[in-house]
């Protein structure tokens, strides 16, 4: 098939319009001079200026970024190890339990994950704040990392690693110098995924946060409940820009790495 049939072209156009139009409209209206969110009153960047004067929002953004960064690092290490275990530890004691625990958080409703972790933290008397949010986020993010890295590991040719071992490399060295570089794009994608998942989460953070550790989605949520406002549009636009640049940079790096090989 080398051309689009009309039906397929229409499906794609409508499908992607549906996916992107709401986001595009949100971005456009963040530059709206009018206070009314749905009436165009001319171009203005005043909501962005208002945003940078909003200390509460900036504090929340700082906490969110810090949590997301720590979560991404922890989840990447744990998730990669889990992926290695899933693909290679075929005789792991309690393997069924391990597999179940790795896949269940992928689809587990967030209200349950959030509530159960909160009850754990309360039961052991762990003070709620930055670390409780980070632990909670790491728990579900590591499962996403594991799935991403696992799919790469499954297609990895084990004989490369065995060749390195035949040439005298100790197993850990063969793993670090041969396997890790090959699965690095998947690990990087896993890190990014964990970062955005954490940055985005509202429900689990609401359950596990304490006083003084309100995250950005929690702030946005509480103001959204009061109604749509242009400065929230501006905050969302900045987040979208952040993510778009990040994803594009990641894609480009992957492309460049691929073409130099």
């Amino acid at each position: 098939m080398n051309r689009f049939t009309p039906f397929n072209a229409v499906s794609l156009t409508l499908g992607f319009a549906f996916l992107y139009l709401p986001i595009v409209l949100l971005v456009i209206f963040s530059f709206n001079a009018s206070q009314l969110v749905t009436v165009w009153g001319g171009f203005s960047t005043k909501w962005y200026a208002a945003l940078f004067a909003n200390k509460q929002l900036l504090d929340a953004a700082r906490i969110s970024l810090l949590v997301a960064f720590t979560t991404a690092c922890l989840a990447t290490v744990l998730g990669t190890l889990a992926a290695v275990a899933l693909t290679r530890a075929t005789r792991l004691p309690g393997r069924t339990l391990f597999t179940a625990m790795t896949y269940a958080p992928l689809v587990m409703p967030e209200v349950i994950t959030g509530l159960s972790l909160l009850l754990l933290f309360v039961a052991v008397g762990f003070e709620r704040g930055f670390w409780t949010i980070t632990i909670a986020h790491t728990t579900f993010a590591l499962c996403f990392v594991a799935v991403v890295v696992q799919s790469r590991l499954l297609s990895f040719d084990r004989s490369l690693e065995e060749a390195a071992q035949d040439l005298g490399a100790p197993p850990w060295r063969a793993f670090v110098t041969v396997t890790i570089p090959t699965i690095l794009p998947a690990i990087a994608a896993g890190w990014l995924l964990a970062f955005t998942l954490s940055l985005d989460d509202l429900v689990i953070a609401s359950f596990t946060s304490g006083p003084g550790s309100t995250t950005l989605p929690m702030r946005i949520f509480s103001s959204v409940r009061l109604g749509v406002s242009p400065d929230i549009n501006a905050a969302c636009t900045i987040l979208i820009a952040f993510v778009t640049v990040g994803v594009m940079a990641a894609t480009l790096t992957a492309k460049l790495r691929g073409s130099t090989r």
Binding site: P22, I23, L26, L199, D200, L202, P217, I220, F221, V224, V228, I232, C236, L239, I240, V243, T244
Partner: peptide, 8 residues
């Protein structure tokens, strides 16, 4: 992009 933003 954020789930919350897309719903919003």
């Amino acid at each position: 992009t954020s789930f919350l933003i897309r719903v919003y």
